[in-house]
């Protein structure tokens, strides 16, 4: 069975999509921290889903040029594959369908709390 993307995957993919050519781990982390206003993102928390996504063919990675700022180590850039784009599209449509007809402010059925 084809599995749906998780919320973390979705966030990661959208970040990569937005960052375009600049999508390596450090800006990804920074962007995530920025938009989600949560500070408890860890690098490890990014590597694991990225490894999984890469294994599933959702993203692909390539090595960039080494820079001195990184102790001479190269960056690993991520790029969404076609399969990944389709999966993202799918999630977006699913989301749209699911949210359709639900008011902007979500109330409890039993009225105000």
């Amino acid at each position: 069975m084809k599995e749906l993307l998780t919320r973390t995957d979705e966030l990661l993919l959208l970040t990569i999509y937005r960052l375009k050519e600049d999508a390596y781990t450090v800006p990804i982390l920074e962007h995530l921290e920025e938009v989600s206003s949560r500070k408890n993102w860890t690098l490890a928390g990014i590597y694991i889903p990225l490894l999984k996504l890469e294994k599933n063919g959702i993203v692909e990675s390539y090595l960039g040029e080494p820079t001195s700022q990184r102790g001479g180590r190269s960056k690993r850039y991520y790029k969404i594959t076609n399969k990944g784009l389709r999966a993202l599209q799918e999630v977006k449509e699913l989301q749209k369908t699911m949210w359709d007809g639900i008011p902007d402010m979500i109330y409890s059925d039993e009225g105000d709390l």
Partner: peptide
């Protein structure tokens, strides 16, 4: 092992 070198680079950068 696969990402080890780039990952350490990330850590160092941040």
């Amino acid at each position: 092992d696969k990402i080890i070198n780039t990952a350490i680079g990330d850590y160092e950068e941040i």
